[in-house]
Amino acid sequence: MAEPIVRKRTYWIVYVVLLALTLLTVLLGYLHMGEFNMVVAIAIATIQASLIAGFFMHALYEAPLVRVVTVGGVIWFLIMMTLTLTDYHTRGWLPFPGK
């Protein structure tokens, strides 16, 4: 394991991209986009998170199992989010109070 997993140059490139994305997301925040403000902010945050996980945390270079764990964690979070929201988004579809 004398060879480093990722080259220093890669780290610096990723770092610059991350800072640029931060600037971009702040600037986009000033636009009036309605619900899309949140969508854009979350999308950019997801890209930043993927870059940090993939390069800084070596997820792209580790054993496949590590990627399974990472993706698995995210999928389980999405299960929790989606199934909870099935309730909140379908409330009020029927013309009865409380349904």
Binding site: L83, T86, D87, Y88, T90, R91, G92, W93, L94, G98, K99
Partner: peptide, 11 residues
């Protein structure tokens, strides 16, 4: 408990 009907069907 107040779960929406459609959500209840899915569950």
């Amino acid at each position: 408990a107040g779960l929406s009907v459609y959500s209840a069907m899915a569950f």
